[in-house]
Design a protein around this nucleic acid. Sequence first.
RNA 1: GCGGAUGUAGCUCAGUUGGCAGAGCACUUGGUUGUGGCCCAAGGGGUCGGGAGUUCAAGCCUCCUCAUUCGCCCCA
Length: 417
Amino acid sequence: MSKISRIKGFADIFAPGSSLFTFMENTARRVFSSYGYSELRVPILEFTELFSRGIGTETDVVQKEMFTFPDRKGRSLTMRPECTAGIMRAYIDANLHARESVSKLFSFGPMFRYERPQKGRMRQFHQLDCECLGAHEPQADAECVAMLMHLMSELGLDQVHLELNTLGCKECRPRYKALLTEFLRGLDVDSFCEDCQRRIVTNPLRVLDCKAPRCKDMTESAPSIGDHVCPECAEHFAVVTGFLSDRGIPFVLNSRLVRGLDYYMRTTFEVVSTTIGAQGSVAGGGRYDGLVAQLGGPDVPGVGYAVGMERVALMLEQNMPDECTARPDFYLAVLEDGALNTALCLAQALREEGFSGETSFAAKSMKSQMRQASKTNARYCLILGKDELAQGTVNVKNMDSGEQRQTPLADAALALA
RNA sequence: GCGGAUGUAGCUCAGUUGGCAGAGCACUUGGUUGUGGCCCAAGGGGUCGGGAGUUCAAGCCUCCUCAUUCGCCCCA
């Protein structure tokens, strides 16, 4: 029989990698809860329209990167490429805005985008996601960013920096867009890369985000959005940056930080790492007033972000957290068939006492048992052979010091403590 | 969607001008009948990613294909 292959871009995550994901989820749960956020689990599959309307028809994500297919009744479904839209839908469905003025929600799970896989980019990837709905105040943006940086620090990530920008609102952004378009058209348009020539027409803001050196040079003196937002947006942004400065949270202003999803406005931010390859954006988010209304709900403002778990995992691998390398307490080596049952009972009793460890399912030579014990990295090796069977004891060996002593079976737990 | 690199033992990889398929690690067994990580010896393991072609002869050269991977793009 031929074996069945894994789907491209879909990873099997074994230990110790899987323990990093558990660590991230546990840490995030703790941090998010401490800010009054509660967990919301939303479906992985949604009607396609949720994403086309929510993320924006013209975005790359919607145009080229979604796993979309019809269900058995011919309706178009899509594996979620991000989870903000799904959370908004749930928020609207549950009529949450009528029950509380501000809703703070977080969610974890797999997302799906049909892209060419590379380091830090899978077709199935995982995000931690946080959304604060109902608050238009800049304090909400500020707390959101602070919470994200708090999470980064709880995860032990220090090789990151925070980038910040404002995109203006639906009043001032179009004015800036027009100004920018005018500036770009005044340049030698043919010298831009192919993508940028297209962007000048479709989405001029993204030209500023182009990585091509030539495009970068040409847009050096482009008008900066920060200088052209309306007074309200400027004031909003000033409160956010002021808070971060007061709190001593370092950030860099990046007037070229443009989020690729249409719904962002005003504050946008990104956490960037330089140690994990080309896909260095570890987290990103911003304000998205108008999205809820866009999805058929009440006109409720929102701000939130997502953290890329695979990318965080790449950073954690460089410096494994202690929690992810916990040693088992024991390995139970069985030398005689007659001791197998006693061993099984002993191991079970120890686990009920709160110890962790494995027992051998078959009797083997001392040599192979010892090798196995080393491999599990257990603190103690418990040996059951014919001598122990006869005496009703177990030989407890400290794997670090090599010390060992015969202990009555009933006292095995004491020996491990 | 575009570009580069790489596919040889379970893992990491050598393989010269085209000439018998290799090493280290891991595994099994023994040295040592009940004490591991070091040492010594022996052993098991291969569709050289797949297919076509050139050749007396292909892991090596040519073409096609598949897969992996790093970038571009995009995003978290």
